[in-house]
Design a protein around this nucleic acid. Structure first.
Lengths: 303, 303
DNA sequence: TTCAAATTGTACTACCTGTATAAAAATATA
DNA sequence: TATATTTTTATACAGGTAGTACAATTTGAA
């Protein structure tokens, strides 16, 4: 049962926030969520996999919220960027993500480590993309460096600010200060022409091809949101509705969060989705987007 | 036997570097260093305490090397600062300190966590002190902020640089680039007068009073080095020599690495040390330094 | 009602940390 | 050298964890 599993994820997350990942034993989770050991191992192959499931649910929401803030706004507007940052930092704090990250790096679990590493790189890529929006294409060669430094700078500022004002943190203030430094830094390095890392490295680290192309991601999210709205509006059978939305989410996930999206699966899912017969225009656009995506990927692979 | 214990520390460090802290069981350490369980628990009360012992030996060497680089040099010379950084980064890499740090944050061991936290703050304080040397007293209000940001910025630059050039890292280049950013940042924030954190926070976080005063630390180290030289030169009995050096090291350690140095202990040790009857001038200076230290501490405590 | 799938309880293996203790070995002392 | 003291060892033990196996039970859908 899907809800049951979801409930375990929720309960475990609570425990992890309270006691930490390592300190929470599987037995604790069993007691707290009221399931048996057998069921647990039916859901997850290990505690690590459960943690990944928690991460995924948090990130799904975070990415959605983050993109909602951008919806209909000028991507070059740095105030929007700061709002996005604040939203993410509050989410991180609430879910104690940073602490859970650090904990994870200790485990032996290779998959888990890799997952966290990819998430960090994903965050870096997001900064890089947004910096292009904000500072312009011509600054591109310096923007990976700036993303790297900004990530570190902001993290430290937040961490020590938290230590300084335990009760009343001023996340907003810290973000504004950090972004202030960032702006100067971008101007400075682009002015003097100093570069430490090639932005091409990002594609090497995160071989997701077009995923690095912000246009693709934005388009995908846009179509996805529109289709979802159409589905919830036009399909009244609840079961059907849920089914289509799940299909949509699967496509989105496969394209954005898999290193090698499976073409045949996506195409098959798309044709099933077509059966819903809603919002044909957006549907066609989505198909076209997927098409060009795979065309470009194939080109890339043969070179 | 001291050597035996030291050997265990060495062997365990090797294992931790190879397999990680968590992944190394106590049994592994016993097998690898050829001692029995009883002996292990005679030396250390837990694996965590062993790790702290490892940290301490590494840091003792690191601090010494770091101060040797400064010996007889102009503290305002930024090239020296970069040399110190490079030395530390190479040591960190060699000993895999960063990774071991991250691992530690996961354990339940409160003492261990606290120790690592204090070490990080110690590093921050060191940056702060050096920045005062380099950029001048008048920039003081902005230098804690800059230390915080520099710590994060440098760490991230190094981390991603390592990822980019797995085989041939360019630590020197990364440091030069990062310090370049730092210099501009200091000028910028001091020019615009933006401040995020009060430097006084450092004393709140690391209640070591004068330890934050670089003058004190430098003087102490200076006297210590001079006295040590005099002892090795003038005392020929090896046992005596070792005894006096141990006393000296105890005083240094108590003053620099304890949150509440014990006055009576230090004074007693000093008077024993006096018995060596070497280098009376430096001896008197050391006594005076300790005296003013405790006078200031008491003043501070009564306000 | 029937049947398959999910869930439970229980027992089990294998590993871990840390404690206890008597015997053996090394070291110091007389 | 002989004796006393400390250190080390081997071993067994208690109490905890992750994960497996499997028969018995419950659940949910046809």
């Amino acid at each position: 049962m899907y809800n049951r599993k979801q409930n375990v994820i929720k309960m475990a997350h609570q425990l992890f926030i309270e006691k930490g990942f390592q300190a929470t034993s599987i037995q604790d989770i069993l007691d707290y969520s009221g399931i048996s050991k057998g069921t647990f191992y039916n859901y997850f192959s290990s505690k690590s996999e459960l943690l990944i499931a928690i991460y995924k649910t948090i990130y799904k929401k975070l990415e959605k919220d983050r993109n909602d803030l951008l919806l209909g706004q000028d991507p070059a507007n740095i105030e929007i960027f700061m709002k996005q940052l604040e939203m993410q930092m509050i989410s991180n704090r609430k879910n104690k993500l940073i602490i859970l990250y650090e904990e994870v790096m200790s485990t032996n679990d290779v998959d888990l480590k890799q997952y966290v590493q990819r998430t960090r790189l994903g965050s870096l890529r997001w900064y890089y993309g947004r910096f292009i929006d904000i500072f312009g294409e011509d600054k591109k060669p310096y923007l990976l460096d700036c993303a790297i430094m900004f990530q570190g700078l902001l993290q430290h500022n937040l961490q020590y600010n938290r230590m300084a004002n335990k009760s009343s943190e001023k996340i907003n203030q810290v973000i504004r200060y950090s972004v202030g430094r960032l702006v100067k830094m971008v101007n400075e390095v682009s002015g003097s022409g100093e570069q430490l890392h090639e932005p091409e490295l990002l594609e090497k680290w995160l071989p997701g091809c077009q995923k690095n192309d912000f246009g693709f991601k934005n388009q995908l999210l846009h179509h996805s949101v529109t289709l979802r709205k159409a589905i919830t509006k036009n399909i009244h059978d609840e079961g059907e509705q849920e089914k289509y939305i799940e299909l949509l989410e699967f496509i989105q996930d496969e394209l954005l969060h898999t290193s090698m999206p499976r073409k045949f699966l996506i195409e098959s899912t798309l044709s099933t989705l077509k059966g819903s017969a809603v919002c044909e225009k957006e549907h066609r656009q989505l198909e076209e987007l997927v098409d060009t995506y795979f065309k470009q990927t194939e080109e890339r692979e043969t070179t």
